[in-house]
Simulated scan of single mutants.
Amino acid sequence: MDSFPKSDVHASTVDSTESIEQRLSVFIKQVSGRALIMMEAATGHHDVARDLVQESFIALHQHYAKRPASEWTPLFYTILNNRLMDWRRQETRKQKRFAWLRLTVVEDEQELDSSLLIEDEQNINPAEFLNQEFTLQEIQKAISRLPLRQQQAFLLRAWENMDTKTTATIMDCSEGSVKTHYHRAIQTLRLHLSQFNPE
């Protein structure tokens, strides 16, 4: 009895591989712009931001390409967040500011403990919140002035439309902390952007 030709099996494998590559390519195009903005705001350096995003895509491709496409977004942002944290630790070592960093982290966590009941503002539409009269440069400047954790919470929740639970997983913190960071980001952005449009 003849079985399926080996060439057909090989062709099927190639098609499957090409399909994954094509879907990854589409995914990269969809998220790369927003991811780059996030990293530029977090690092203040375009080249560093680009490297972090590229390294994260490479890691996603190498380790998680065969996972369902629905899992790629949280996986990618988890990888990106870890890369960012590594970069920040390296920068801290270079600048020899260990005492300053420890103090900042402790104070931040103490503030969060007393604010966990803040309501999550789930219905904010970034297009409406960030008034269309504002230029992209003004918006990016306001976001870049936020503390890192507020940047992450705002961009993941508002721009990437992730729920609180997924955002907490990516940021490696509690859902209460995400709500607090997000709430503070909203308040701070409203304050900064009001300087451009007092009305």
Rank of each mutant, 00 (worst) to 15 (best):
S70D: 11
A99I: 12
F4W: 04
V9T: 06
I118E: 12
D51E: 09
F4L: 13
R83C: 08
L24W: 06
T13E: 06
L75V: 09
L103P: 05
L60R: 05
P68R: 11
K29Y: 01
N131I: 07
M39P: 05
E21R: 14
L116N: 04
N81Q: 10
H63K: 05
Q62M: 08
E71C: 05
A42P: 07
M85V: 13
F98N: 08
Q110G: 01
F76M: 12
V26Q: 09
L156S: 12
M171T: 02
L193A: 12
D86A: 15
T167I: 07
E119F: 07
S177Q: 01
N161F: 00
P126E: 06
E128H: 03
D47F: 05
D47G: 01
S115I: 08
E119Q: 13
M171L: 09
S194K: 06
Q122G: 07
Q62A: 09
H10T: 02
Q140C: 10
V9F: 14
T164Q: 11
E119W: 05
T167L: 03
D15E: 07
N125C: 10
L156G: 08
N82K: 13
F27P: 10
T78E: 12
L189N: 00
K141V: 00
E107V: 02
R97N: 15
L116P: 02
A59D: 08
P68S: 04
L52W: 03
L136E: 11
Q150D: 01
P74E: 15
H181L: 01
N82L: 10
A153R: 01
S144F: 13
Y77A: 04
I118R: 11
L24T: 04
I139L: 08
T104A: 08
V31A: 05
T104D: 12
A42L: 13
S115N: 11
T188R: 05
D163N: 12
A59S: 10
L75Y: 03
E40L: 07
R184P: 13
K96S: 05
M162P: 00
H181F: 03
E91F: 09
R184F: 06
L112R: 07
S16P: 04
N197D: 08
M38I: 02
F196K: 15
Q150V: 00
V26D: 13
E128N: 11
R145D: 10
Q62L: 09
D163K: 14
R149Q: 00
T167A: 06
T17Q: 14
F76L: 13
E111A: 14
S144P: 00
Q122A: 03
N123T: 13
I139Q: 10
Y77H: 09
E128T: 14
V178F: 01
W87F: 07
L193E: 00
F57T: 10
D47N: 10
